[in-house]
């Protein structure tokens, strides 16, 4: 708490922090005017559902970004664990709950291996997770020769297709619940602050007695876990595991985080802001589709959004230094 409270400054700070929310509103209004199909309950639900699986991955990516690293394996981790769970449920006819547990464990393992190789073997995170991305991609295809596994047991349907009072998707509630928890953990618990400290200056964190290797390990493992949770929701919603599940989620999650104000250099930003980033991203491309923008051109746009978002991050840091 500072001695003086300047309302103008506070407003400016708030506007910077909540820029994404303004952007979402403006985008929403523009699309609503431009397309009659945009502002329909059906489309809004659709956007929310798509944003849900992405933003659960973005939570994990946010934690890794806070420590100053990145995880490029998250998307394919979603794909692989989806296949493993579907395979166990449908082909081996395991109890679906046990299959989900096995899937989540695999997802954690993938994350833990990333974290271990990075923190303890000192291989750059970029390389480790890029390698892991390919390992997951290949392993997923090996399981069923790249054919989809569809019609999953009814027990798991509610994760992705269930509704509370026939209106609110269960998956959205799960996602919101996870955000509340992780936002709380990141601000109010020791490990949360250690993510920030290690990302802010890993050396200084070490010399303050923080076990930074363990912190990295935890961050990557949790990121894996969230990829797994996202995967459960995704296979349930699509009622199938297939090779395109989670495709490019790692990048989209990264864009979401950066748009939300989480710094690529670590130690800065709010986990919850990645949710707004994800909604913005999905909204943007949904609107583009509604306006019949060429899907190939949408890819071009997405690349531009990523560069722009990171450019803004760089600019923000530069302003601080001046």
């Amino acid at each position: 708490m500072n001695v003086t409270w300047d309302p103008k400054k506070a407003l400016w700070k708030a506007s910077k922090e909540y820029m994404v929310i303004f952007a979402i509103l403006i985008l929403g209004i523009v699309f609503s005017i431009a397309s009659p199909y945009f502002l329909t309950i059906n489309n809004m639900t659709n956007i929310l559902l798509q944003a849900t699986t992405l933003s659960v991955v973005a939570i994990g990516q946010a934690m890794v970004l806070l420590t100053g690293q990145m995880d490029l394996s998250l998307g394919q981790n979603v794909c692989l664990t989806g296949y493993i769970m579907a395979y166990l449920m449908n082909i081996l006819e395991w109890n679906p709950w046990v299959a989900i547990l096995a899937g989540l464990l695999t997802a954690c393992m993938v994350g833990a291996v990333n974290g271990f190789l990075f923190a303890y073997c000192k291989i750059p995170a970029f390389i480790v997770t890029l390698g892991m991305q390919n390992i997951c991609k290949g392993a997923a295809k090996l399981i069923t020769n790249a054919t989809p596994i569809s019609r999953l047991p009814d027990e798991i349907a509610f994760f992705g297709r269930g509704y509370l009072w026939d209106a609110i998707p269960i998956s959205v509630l799960i996602m919101l619940f996870l955000y509340v928890i992780i936002q709380f953990v990141s601000v109010k618990t020791k490990i949360g602050r250690q993510f920030y400290a290690v990302g802010g200056n890993s050396e200084a964190a070490f010399f303050a007695g923080i076990n930074k290797k363990a912190v990295y390990l935890v961050a990557f493992t949790l990121a894996g876990l969230f990829a797994g949770i996202s995967s459960v929701i995704l296979i349930s919603r699509l009622n199938s595991a297939n090779v395109t599940n989670g495709n490019l989620y790692e990048f989209d999650a990264m864009i979401s985080c950066v748009i939300g104000g989480i710094s690529m250099t670590g130690g800065k930003g709010k986990v919850v802001s990645s949710l707004f980033g994800a909604v913005f991203l999905i909204l943007f491309f949904n609107g583009m589709t509604m306006l019949n923008v060429d899907p190939f051109f949408q890819d071009v746009l997405k690349g531009m959004v990523l560069i722009a978002a990171i450019g803004i991050d760089v600019l923000r840091n530069r302003q601080k230094q001046a």
């Binding site: 400290a197 200056n201 200084a204 007695g209």
Partner: peptide, 23 residues
């Protein structure tokens, strides 16, 4: 490089070693 997290506040830096005392 080793003493402080430059982007952290004064109090956040002070509480970094004895973090358990504020928990």
């Amino acid at each position: 490089l080793q003493g402080l997290v430059q982007i952290f506040s004064v109090k956040e830096n002070i509480c970094m070693v004895a973090a358990d005392k504020v928990i």
